[in-house]
């Protein structure tokens, strides 16, 4: 049940599949698909950017640097970076355990890793609330604290690094590591010089995905973080409150910042993947 969230198009291009020219029939299909995709995705997203640009650069800048908004963006980005770093370490470690270790109940761990991807975000918030909320059986109450944002981000981004690193690790031949070890390399050296370099593109792709997911997260925070301005309010919540106050231009400006981050991540992923496919 792997790769629910692996980066797009990661498979090696088969030499058999030489793409053909567009025929009249497929041209029609392409046209229909493009119109549909534009109506649902491209035109609405363009409307966000257009609305943000309506008031000119100064209005955009004022909306984005508004004290409360800036605090929300700072909180979101810093927590997303923190969570991404944790994921790079824990995700690689979990992938390692899943590929190289054998033990009873490993299948269950596989299910647990995919769960955050399949679980509705509002349910994710409720789920975390029951262990880390006011009635916590372990006595940890993170509700309305910045750490609530960290925990919610960690939950929803869990699968990304694991699922991108796992297939690469599976392809890796342990004999190379044994060769390094037999030549006198310590385990740390083997990992650092032999294993890690081949994992880095996968870790980077997973990190980019989990950063993008964290920055855009909304649902899991609703019940958990309290959305306190300057303390636990994240960017998505800020956009929503602008919408609810009929401040569409302000909402669109902040949304454009979020969109720019998503686009940047897509570009990074595309570059990383092209590098991976060329090597593979």
């Amino acid at each position: 049940m792997t790769v629910a969230v692996a980066p797009p198009g990661k498979a090696r291009r088969s030499r058999l599949a030489v793409p053909g020219r567009v025929t009249p029939a497929s041209g029609l299909g392409l046209g229909v698909a493009l119109v549909w995709f534009s109506l649902i995705v491209l035109i609405p997203l363009a409307a966000v950017v257009a609305t943000a640009a309506e008031g000119g650069w100064s209005a955009f800048w004022r909306a984005v640097t508004n004290e409360q908004t800036a605090a929300a963006i700072r909180l979101t980005v810093s927590q997303a970076i923190l969570v991404t770093v944790i994921n790079m370490v824990m995700g690689t470690l979990i992938a390692w355990v899943l590929v190289r270790d054998q033990f009873f109940g490993k299948r269950l761990l596989e299910v647990l890793i995919d769960l955050p991807f399949a679980l509705p975000t509002i349910v994710a918030g409720l789920v975390l609330l029951s262990l880390y909320g006011p009635k916590s059986p372990v006595g940890v109450d993170i509700v309305n604290k910045p750490s609530a944002v960290t925990v919610a981000f960690l939950f929803v981004t869990l699968p990304f690094v694991v699922r991108t690193v796992q297939p690469v690790l599976e392809e890796l031949d342990p004999e190379v590591e044994e060769a390094a070890a037999s030549l006198g390399a310590s385990r740390l050296t083997t990992f650092r010089r032999v294993v890690l370099p081949s994992l880095i593109p996968a870790i980077a792709a997973g990190a980019a995905l989990s950063f993008a997911r964290a920055v855009s997260e909304y649902g899991s925070l609703v019940l958990l973080s309290g959305n306190l301005p300057f303390k636990t309010e994240v960017t998505s919540v800020r956009v929503l409150s602008s919408i609810e106050n009929n401040n569409t231009a302000g909402a669109a400006a902040v949304a454009t910042v979020l969109l720019a981050i998503s686009l940047a991540v897509i570009v990074i992923l595309d570059v990383v993947q092209r590098r991976m496919t060329r090597r593979g």
């Binding site: 995905l209 909304y218 998505s236 919540v237 919408i243």
Partner: peptide
Amino acid sequence: SALVDLPLSVSPIVVGLA
């Protein structure tokens, strides 16, 4: 093919606004 993946990384609130 890059744009087709875009919906996965757009914030749900931004989707609604759009």
